[in-house]
Design a protein around this nucleic acid. Structure first.
Lengths: 235, 235
DNA sequence: TCATTGCCAATTGTTGACAATAGGCAATAA
DNA sequence: TTATTGCCTATTGTCAACAATTGGCAATGA
């Protein structure tokens, strides 16, 4: 036991994996991946035995994973009927966006009180890169940069509760597919909002930081809801 | 089937119970009750078989309930070791309070845009009652009123995601026992803050409402952390 | 005395089997 | 033809048994 990977660079990492790894955990992450990949549409049924066979396990771990996914808002459960991919109605999406806006604004506010020069520099760099991608109308480049910007702010607060809650909401919103930012115009205004956030952070102005962060997500909500009218989730 | 309780007043309610009721759900709620009652101290082990026997079920539903409680932050799980009541360190409590402050401020902000006269009247009435209880130094009367005030604001937003997230955090904080408000002085300042919130709501000023709500929870955090130095949760 | 090794009981992890429920389909009757 | 009834299959809910892991305890040896 003690001789495992003694010279390996990631021994502690491997131990971490062992410490948190259980079959249920793995199954949960795999089902989450399947759901968010869109392989099953919202409202579609997730059959216990089918999934268990696909993953090469029995129904027990699958059922346990379902419980976790239910609390996380990714599936809905109906007793004696089964488990279904969570449907997100327009109304639900609005509610999630409002909470996400509040949390992101809170992250900005908290970060404004403790931001380091390194963190600030990282955000400025991301904005510069987004400017480039925006000028090229390169959505595939802009998207991950945008995510990285938000992630940097949220994780920068060093508040695990905040991060988990925020990213949980982001996952849920992935079930409400209708990518905004798609039609041009989203680029410029979005990055203008990013600059407003970083300005408030650099000023160490919690007040302004919250407002800028809140307003940014609300603007994102408006962009998403304006574009398209997804059929799904007529709950 | 169709003749069940045809004349009953709560037929739909009974159907609701049936719709959401499963053994796992009941077990989960019962274990949650046990945990929050303090019957098990934070860090204490929850034995599967013992709980299953107590509740008169097998280990399956108990394990499923554990998964849900883990996601909700009420228990921690260590593979091959078992399930333990979640320990909340001082650092954790600060993090939870910060997020709760952001969510409560967000609730105030959202409510400011849609508050009805009835809702406002309810909040004013609660403040008046808290004044009375405060003057009498009647903690047992003040506490539930205080909770009712916060609940009215959060549920008043009519945002289920917000409510669930907020009350989830409140539950977690119950594991960090050290009731503030205990020593006098908490009363007056707390209710002064309540008035500031309602004033902002009546003014339909989202900006001021957020600030008042955020500040109120932060003040509560300070009151709790100032009083006592709980031993538990030395994570 | 103290550290190490090896066994053992207790507990968790996983599985397969059995019971209960739901939904579909065919048979029946109006 | 259409609605209703009664089976029947598929799926979920629950359980008990088996496998695997852990931690404690005694035995051993320095």
């Amino acid at each position: 036991m003690a001789m495992i990977a003694r010279g390996s660079l990631d021994t502690s990492e491997a131990l971490d994996v062992l410490r948190t790894s259980s079959l249920t955990r793995v199954v949960q992450e795999e089902i989450e991946r399947i759901i968010l990949s869109g392989a099953y549409a919202p409202g579609e049924k997730l059959n216990e035995k089918t999934l268990a066979d696909q993953l090469g396990v029995s129904r027990g771990p699958v059922r346990e994973a379902f419980q976790a996914l239910h609390v996380r808002g990714l599936v809905e459960m109906i007793p004696n009927r089964g488990v279904f991919v969570q449907r997100i109605s327009r109304h639900d999406a609005v509610a999630i966006y409002d909470v996400r806006a509040g949390l992101f604004g809170t992250a900005c506010r908290l970060l404004a009180e403790r931001i380091t020069t390194a963190q600030s520099a990282e955000l400025h760099a991301l904005i510069a890169q987004m400017d480039v991608a925006g000028k090229k109308r390169d959505l595939d480049a802009y998207f991950p940069l945008n995510i990285a910007f938000h992630t940097a702010i949220v994780t920068g607060t060093d508040n695990r509760i905040l991060s988990e809650t925020y990213f949980g909401l982001v996952s849920r919103l992935q079930l409400f597919r209708a990518r905004g930012l798609v039609h041009g115009g989203g680029f410029e205004s979005s990055n203008i909002e990013h600059r407003a956030i970083v300005t408030a952070l650099d000023d160490r102005n919690p007040h302004a930081a919250f407002e800028a962060g809140f307003a940014h997500v609300q603007a994102g909500k408006a962009r998403i809801l304006a574009s398209g009218d997804p059929q799904q989730g007529r709950t």
